[in-house]
């Protein structure tokens, strides 16, 4: 799951993310960071589901971090996709691959939202909301 973590002034200097990782054992991955002395915004990928995911999100909220969940990572317009494969080898996490019948398969769990596939697609079939 991907989420945006918004740190307000006052909590921005605290090592909240590290302590959540330590307490839950979930290896949270930072995809994008914009931090200054006043406030900070992190886009993270949280490789957890169900109960564990709720625990992670609650720990952030309790620490005073505002959490915005992203419903989806990227969107593939299957009507546009021509199964060319131009997005597959540039994907750093192998989240995109061919199925047995040579159609495209997307593994949401592996996606780190780097967006390289968005520009690699020649027909703009991939968008990131």
């Amino acid at each position: 799951m991907r989420a945006k973590l918004i740190y307000s002034h006052g909590v921005v200097e605290k090592p909240i993310l590290a302590s959540v990782v330590l307490r839950t054992g979930v290896p949270i991955n930072i995809l994008e960071a914009r931090v200054n002395a006043q406030k900070g915004e992190l886009i993270v990928s949280i490789p957890a589901t169900g109960e564990k995911l709720r625990e992670v999100l609650n720990l952030f909220r309790e620490a005073g971090v505002q959490v915005q969940e992203f419903a989806e990572t990227l969107r593939i317009d299957w009507g546009k996709c021509m199964a060319c494969g131009a997005c597959i080898s540039p994907c750093p996490t192998k989240a995109l691959r061919f199925r047995e019948d040579w159609s495209l398969e997307f593994d949401e769990e592996r996606c780190v939202a780097c967006k390289i596939c968005v520009t690699a697609c020649p027909v703009k079939a991939i968008t990131m909301p």
Partner: peptide
């Protein structure tokens, strides 16, 4: 096959043309 061995490393490979459409 999706990977090519290059300098003792497996490098991901993928097409730009569509095999599915060719079929």
């Amino acid at each position: 096959s999706g990977k090519v061995s290059l300098n003792d490393r497996d490098v991901p490979s993928s097409s730009l043309s569509s095999y599915k459409m060719a079929r």
